[in-house]
């Protein structure tokens, strides 16, 4: 089992332990129990996904004896250094939130802009 899978499982186990302890000691107070239960479920979901992802993962970082020479020529993809869309996405989110509170028209325009930016962002990623 890879270390990161173990981390998610340990975290889930810890969440479960603290949930059970909390339920026994403070069960008259339900909010905390519900919060811990939601958190533990989310961790369990992440741990399960990690197990599935692990099956197909080949991580050079886990090869104790591997050197950069051994993986020479491996395609890591292209890491872009420029994109205008992240700042536009953030601006759209800001105006969307302001619009929801103060101006439905602004909210509508911001949501359209946000969807457009996300679409272009996806297209840009796919192109690379």
């Amino acid at each position: 089992m890879k270390t990161f899978v173990g981390l998610f499982f340990t975290s889930t186990g810890f969440g479960l332990a603290i949930l059970i302890a909390y339920w026994f000691i403070g069960h008259e107070e339900t909010t905390g129990t519900v919060l811990l239960a939601i958190m533990t479920s989310a961790l369990a979901f992440a741990a399960t996904y990690a197990v599935i992802a692990e099956r197909n993962a080949r991580l050079d970082g886990d090869g104790e004896k591997l050197t950069p020479e051994d993986t020479k020529g491996e395609d890591l993809g292209i890491f872009t250094t420029q994109s205008a869309y992240p700042i536009l996405v953030a601006l759209s989110v800001l105006f969307m939130l302001l619009g929801i509170l103060y101006s439905p028209l602004l909210a509508f325009v911001a949501i359209v802009a946000l969807l457009l930016c996300l679409w272009r962002l996806g297209a840009e990623s796919a192109r690379i």
């Binding site: 270390t3 990161f4 981390l7 975290s11 969440g15 958190m39 989310a42 961790l43 992440a46 993962a57 991580l59 050079d60 970082g61 886990d62 090869g63 104790e64 004896k65 591997l66 050197t67 950069p68 051994d70 993986t71």
Partner: peptide, 30 residues
Amino acid sequence: VFLLRAPGMTMWRVPIFTWEIVATSLLILM
């Protein structure tokens, strides 16, 4: 940290600062 470590950089070789960032990130997600 989980997926982009260089060859030979096993989890038990990453510096403590990076480990603390992993712990912080999991805490943030929770």
